[in-house]
Amino acid sequence: MISVYLTYDAQEVYMKVLEECLKETSLKYELNGWGEVKFTGQPDITEVNEFKNKLQGTGIYVIEDPRNELIQRIKDTISEMILLHDNFKSKKISTYLTEKLNYSYSYLSKIFSEYTHYSIEQFVILKKIDYAKKLILENKLSLTQISYKLGYSSVAHLSQQFKKTTGLTPTTFYNIIEKRKQ
């Protein structure tokens, strides 16, 4: 049996592993002491994500910004609410978000628009129209049924909001996507 006794500098190990992972990307970076990598210039977000993936299994962990995570949870809750339309009709978005996320609506609105450049209300409309598009293209439901499913008071209301959000009527939208397939 042979024993080898080791001593190590944790920071040096950390820096070496980190630099190995960074070298594999074309990102420009600065290392600000412990725990922060600053990507300078115009970093490519996909490369930044690849870098994060490379860290997996190295023992170095990415600390996600808690506010970023909250924005994601707001978006997920909105999607969930639109898909489970029963909740959608009976509850206001503000009540639903407050109950689910345990923050005041004014705090949620503020942080959301600050980071996404969209208000929660605008995002809800965008998400609803995105879902309406999916249903229109599936061609299983009529526009009247879709407007009911999404909680609109009438087809006219849905069509109006569709036009306002996309600049196109539902019919024009449908025709363009169909032509793309040809």
Partner: peptide, 9 residues
């Protein structure tokens, strides 16, 4: 959001 269906005028 679905990029394939993203049309805006």
């Amino acid at each position: 959001l679905n990029i394939e269906n993203f049309l805006y005028r």
